[in-house]
Design a protein around this nucleic acid. Sequence first.
DNA 1: TTTAGTTTGTTGACACTGTCAACAATTTGT
DNA 2: ACAAATTGTTGACAGTGTCAACAAACTAAA
Lengths: 201, 201
Amino acid sequence: MTTKPKRAELREACISEAFRIVEESGVENLSLREVARRLGISHQAPYRHFASRDHILAEIIALSFDEFSVYLNSRPLNQSVHDDLRHMGLHYLNYAKHHPLKYRLMFNTPMPDPVKHINMMNKAQHAFSILSERLEHTPLRPLALSIESSSNLEALFVWSMLHGLASILQSDVLPSLKLTTLEKKHMIAHCFARLSQALQP
Amino acid sequence: MTTKPKRAELREACISEAFRIVEESGVENLSLREVARRLGISHQAPYRHFASRDHILAEIIALSFDEFSVYLNSRPLNQSVHDDLRHMGLHYLNYAKHHPLKYRLMFNTPMPDPVKHINMMNKAQHAFSILSERLEHTPLRPLALSIESSSNLEALFVWSMLHGLASILQSDVLPSLKLTTLEKKHMIAHCFARLSQALQP
DNA sequence: TTTAGTTTGTTGACACTGTCAACAATTTGT
DNA sequence: ACAAATTGTTGACAGTGTCAACAAACTAAA
């Protein structure tokens, strides 16, 4: 439990305590009352700073997107652009692996009404733009003329693969799929190889 | 509300009522008490048939996987194997699009302990096997020798892309990504084109 | 500085949830 | 037909989000 905060700092204290709760035990165990309890304040105090549970949720989702963006950008510099894209993908998967509860918070949680939480959506958009901009400067295998292309579309494709893979890797279903240990070990490498085949000229 | 069921049919009635609730308003609004209310029985009656909420959840997840498997198999027959794979993918996305709440139930919901709900896991495994078996009889572009391959691995790759795409398409984040209407319109076609490039010999 | 007004925190309530325990009705097996 | 087991009901408890009424504390003007 965190030390009892002074006035005016309560809002920030609530957010970081809520963030901590999600890190520790997942969004389904986040309750405003638990936040209040940990901060040693009354169960209604947080309501002076957040209109509803959704509003504090939006804050910590935004925080997570920030953290995620920083993590994506913290990848080592790579010589070739395709190597860099690859490392970005691996970084993506690493974040999901090491912060599964926060990853689920961002991507697997029914979100509060986006229109009411524009800041949150902007942070999400920013994380996406990292991927999109990386692809903007990556020469790709040409597609048939009938197929529309743009760095956003390529980013959506790569993101789909990464998000799907990250989800499956941490899914409860995976252990029941009767995969050999060899298959389990090579999942990521295989998917990245196929991704290269799709993208590399 | 369904008609009050006779004895011994209560278990089945609970399951289908719960299934209906999820279809209508999503898993987060599923409560045993609401099920009981709709069936006109006491709030505790369902507990004679399900040890906990998780147990009825496991039942309707299993049901959803069944429905999903049937849907995947209901695709029209296609001449070429790659065409068939493509249609399978489109069918996958169609299911997610037309049954978003059930799709989320299967793939985006923290599952009850898999070990305690083996039937549910078997149904999930069966849905996966449909994809895996399709890939088993589809000639694919060869990979580098250092890269492991198997129909399961190929299925995981395709599934990753499909699941990622399906999730993103129904995500609340999508509208905030500043995509042009043209990009939105071509998302699916683009991803499938890239998928073909990855897989087609 | 004192006072009035606004912001923030507290207490208590309500409706909702899952689940336990005790009891009643009903069905089943002999 | 009666004993036993199964199934259904009622009532309770702890947990949740949130509203309303009230109290304390900070802020701004006199």
